[in-house]
Design a protein around this nucleic acid. Structure first.
Lengths: 243, 243
DNA sequence: AGACTACAAAAGCATATACATGTACGTATA
DNA sequence: TATACGTACATGTATATGCTTTTGTAGTCT
């Protein structure tokens, strides 16, 4: 019985729409196994190759996961692109099999200075959360993380225990990132930074300034300082595998 | 006559590699019309549907442009993604309305050291091009650019005048980039680097190590050193607009 | 109990065929 | 001369068919 949309588009596009709609509206629950190709054939009255094309394109677009011999499943919310994930330092440390620990130096609500308020693109003055955390890899400090967070998007930021949950994980869970800006530079460590990171003042550090948006609203502004000799940012990117 | 690569991958992938290689090596000139699907069928002994899939995927990845009833053409070099474009320093300098100038320090063909040959993933020893260029913004050195280039993809690299054409522009024009790897770190300048960049030894520099691929072949390996106090890498990215 | 085997299910690959749609171009006709 | 038409060719879509590869499972043998 054919329930495909009645638009002027190729059949495989209709099938894609049909599937995406069923996922989007939640009619197919998140962890459910989708019908097999042959079941789709029976249900929609369309040839298997056409079903296959629709499923393949949805898979390469990241909406589905397919396992040969097993079935087709709805993909979990996407893991961020290479450009974004460079910030989840905790995951990186754990992935290397090392021990992670963090110390929360500051967690407060403040009125932003003029320049900071400007970066948040606030229409009128408003307070923001402010946190400073040091991240350790095997008890060696590798990153000093200073964040400013928009309370209108993440209201309970200052109630969290960031020695247990990484700020990154908490933020990713709370609000979807629709846009990211990165500015990377190399700077000598100032006295305070050097003290927190246990290095000499003037040592080379990698400074990553980051702003994230949720829709049109600036969600977070972060200043991440890495010890140059202990850290580097890597990414690998394939245009052909995502376009 | 079948000239497809002899790898253990599906046929349509081999066809894609075959086409990318022919584009990459310049065997098919930039503005040329590619063979029609049926001509590919005759030339490679592969069914039209398989050819079609290869061409369709290369088109959606941005390498080709197809016009129904007309033919298939090589796409103009793409406006790179945020992650890739951070390397076109010349364009950046000009975009800021500043003057650009470059000095070519080295341009030669060498036998790579063991480690470098390894990075190129060479099956057997083969020579590579080597260039070192300093880029100036308003007569102030901002970047030291050392590149190693695979001659099998870019055969005339050492015949170019890189004080006139930027190495980046030349490479982008000569071969499509299918994959990029970046490793960014902060390091103190060594004596020689410091001399070339007109800074004190030990000053903070941003080091960008970059590898690019064309198909399965490593095309270039670059080591870009930026003066920390005079430069930072920026990017802005919207996951939702490309995934 | 554990290991091996056989089979079934599901996705993946490749092909042949047919028709649809769009473009280019030459030729006939008003 | 300009329009209309026919033909050739190119890409796009849809289907049917047959095979391979991977994975899970149910039996079976030791």
């Amino acid at each position: 019985m054919n329930t495909l949309p009645d638009t002027a588009s190729p059949l495989y596009e209709k099938v894609k729409d049909y599937i995406l709609t069923n996922i989007g509206t939640g009619r197919w629950s998140k962890d459910r196994k989708l019908p097999s190709e042959n079941e789709f054939v029976a249900a929609l009255g369309v040839s298997r190759m056409t079903i296959h094309r629709a499923l393949r394109e949805l898979t390469s677009a990241g909406f589905l996961i397919r396992l040969q011999g097993v079935g087709t499943f709805i993909a979990p919310p996407r893991p961020q692109s290479a450009l974004i994930e460079i910030n989840n330092i905790v995951a990186e440390i754990l992935a290397r099999g090392n021990k992670h620990r963090s110390e929360v130096l500051v967690l407060e609500k403040i009125m932003p200075a003029k320049e900071l308020a400007l970066s948040f693109e606030f229409a009128r003055r408003s307070s923001v959360y402010h946190s400073v955390v040091v991240n350790f890899e095997n008890d060696l400090p590798v990153q000093l993380e200073e964040r400013f967070v928009n309370p209108s998007l993440i209201p309970d930021y200052d109630k969290q225990d960031f020695s247990k949950t990484a700020t990154y994980d908490y933020l990713m869970q709370k609000t979807p990132v629709t846009e990211v800006e990165h500015i990377i530079s190399a700077i000598p460590a100032d006295a305070e930074t050097a003290r927190h990171l246990g290095i000499d003042a003037g040592s080379c550090c990698l400074l990553l300034n980051r702003r994230t948006w949720t829709g049109a609203i600036v969600a977070t502004i972060s200043k991440l300082t890495y010890v140059g000799s202990r850290y580097s940012l890597g990414s690998r990117y394939s245009p052909s595998k995502s376009g």
